[in-house]
Design a protein around this nucleic acid. Structure first.
Lengths: 342, 342
DNA sequence: GTGAAAGCGCTAACAC
DNA sequence: GTGTTAGCGCTTTCAC
């Protein structure tokens, strides 16, 4: 369909170099087997003809595509999606260095556990998957495991201690601990938490950082927390409610489970004539673009997505090379990016 | 590497259904050739065995991969990148409906025109490319055209009237015209333009919407415009300079070439104690997430990326099906999303 | 170290 | 309508 039909093949190169097809193949895959002068001659021919081995033929023969599947959710413009996009960029870089490419696909129609995965798998279109939506309760991991599909998850198998697949995750708890320490260091003692509903494992993990570190500093957490959805509206409403108390009980700082929630709080501050960074401190989570460009700029916990991608690819390499998986799970530590809002 | 080695093949299905391999192939690719009862028998066998045709074998035979290559730039966290991410999502959806998948790749090392493209092309890994960085002066389009590679561009071949490849673009000029009309309707007469350097075709296109529509309304544009980089700093600096004049000459509204620039202006407004939407009006371009979540929310010109993706895939289909390309170029109209800042 | 033979799973071309 | 034959370009196995 696309490459010129007279594209050079192994045979063309072999003729040009005066060797057999097999020798050319060896030059590509096991160059150490060839005598230096033969190798040089073959490489010259490859160079001259502009030859690249045909992927389809190689895939057919080796039963591997050197493709990694990644399912993208339909475009929702929230902070979480922006996070995934940063991850995708890093993943493409990391996979390239490992000789792989990233194949994007999306769910067809209603989202079943098998959706999209099954077809790509049966048709041998990809060698493995990277699964990123484990935060929703891991619907795909179990299915993939059962089918014996190689995959690496970005996100811990929360609530499933029996899971044995490799995963990489970011220590949300540690990120919030940093945020609390930062605020305590700035002299705050009434530090509030704006988090997600119970039932969100990630939300509870992050929240635990706040609870435990507050207690570690001998600070109270009572009447200083709110739970809700990951929306601007919740952030605005919750900040309002927490600030609507006598001045002596009012929180002077807020740590949020996400930048989205933090942006909501910022909206309330604005309405109340409060200035984040002067009258009240605010810390978000995810270090989204919005955190970097809004006024005032938002202090936020940044996930090391580049590093996550590297670790994911490392696991993939071991998985596909049938090398042992040393330790199921790799937890990386986020960093606090301090900006004007605190 | 991944699929169970005993995965069903054409032969398995043929045996099961009691027909020849070719008949199974026909059932898949040209079902109208089969007698209804044979077709039903074959389909039952396919269903029973959970058969999917092997992609590699099919690709090898048909010389097509049903993959579309898309090069992603290294992760830069700016507004433009966020735009591309929205586009990628839409593209994955659109290509799926056309029976294609999106293969992501990145430049290796220094960015030459051929970088990344050449290898995928020669190895027949993809059937076509979607090129998105034509805004930088189109370095790849010329090379791809010369090589006879099928590709569709998101972005006009600015400055190259000889280009004959299909492209889809958004009418930036029309977006700015809408913004000016909106502001004039709100009673503004001194409407400033914060745009990019000369030499950016896209920047000049957007700017022309401001110049022409201001004149169409009988308004002056003199001393109301600034040019610079696509950064917060430029937006902040330019807004400051334009506001640092006697009150009677001061602009009361700003239209920006991007949300990034607009966020910069917002920063200056904040410093000067001005409130966008009350003391001064502000319109951005791209409708980034930041525009939606910042305080006050930002009025912005939104590109119809879903529609762009659909048109891109439509061109791809024609290109790969060797059907005629009706008209080289499809211009879509953006919409103005009005929010608090104006 | 190099070459010859076989075959991965599929589809295009043709025979029946 | 259905079956037979051939071959896409590559790598694996095994002689030499």
């Amino acid at each position: 369909m696309n490459a010129p039909l007279n594209a050079p093949t192994l045979a063309t190169v072999a003729d040009e170099a005066g060797v057999s097809r097999q020798t050319v193949s060896n030059a590509l895959n096991s160059p150490e087997l060839l005598r230096p002068d033969t190798l040089a001659r073959v490489q010259a021919a490859i160079e001259k003809l502009g030859y690249s081995p045909n992927r389809a033929a190689r895939n057919l023969r080796t039963r591997s595509s050197h493709l990694v599947g990644l399912r993208v959710e339909p475009a929702v413009e929230d902070s979480a999606n922006a996070l995934m996009d940063r991850f995708v960029h890093s993943l493409v870089e990391s996979t390239r260095e490992a000789g792989y490419h990233v194949l994007l696909f999306s769910a067809e129609g209603e989202p079943a556990a098998t959706d999209g995965y099954d077809e790509l798998l049966r048709s041998a279109a990809v060698d493995a998957f990277v699964v990123t939506d484990t935060y929703r309760g891991n619907p795909h991991a179990a299915w993939l495991t059962r089918r014996g599909v190689p995959f690496v998850a970005f996100g811990r198998p929360w609530g499933d201690p029996s899971a044995r697949h490799p995963w990489v995750d970011v220590d949300g708890r540690a990120g919030v601990v940093q945020a609390v320490d930062h605020l305590v260091g700035r002299g705050h003692t009434r530090i509030a938490w704006l988090g997600w509903q119970k039932g969100s494992y990630i939300g509870e993990d992050r929240r635990s950082g706040w609870v435990d570190q507050m207690h570690a500093h001998g600070l109270s957490t009572s009447r200083l927390s709110a739970r809700g959805d990951d929306t601007l509206e919740f952030g605005a409403r919750a900040a309002q409610a927490l600030l609507d108390v006598p001045a002596a009980e009012r929180p002077t700082a807020f740590v949020c489970a996400s930048d989205t929630v933090a942006m909501g709080a910022l909206r309330t501050f604005d309405e109340l004539g409060l200035r984040a960074g002067r009258d009240v401190a605010l810390v978000g989570f995810d270090d989204s673009i919005a955190a970097q460009v809004c006024t005032p700029t938002l202090t936020s916990v940044r996930q090391p997505l580049e590093q996550v991608a590297v670790e994911v690819v490392r696991y993939l390499g071991r998985l596909l090379g049938h090398r042992p998986i040393p330790d199921p799970g790799c937890v990386l530590t986020p960093t606090l990016v301090v900006r004007q809002s605190s």
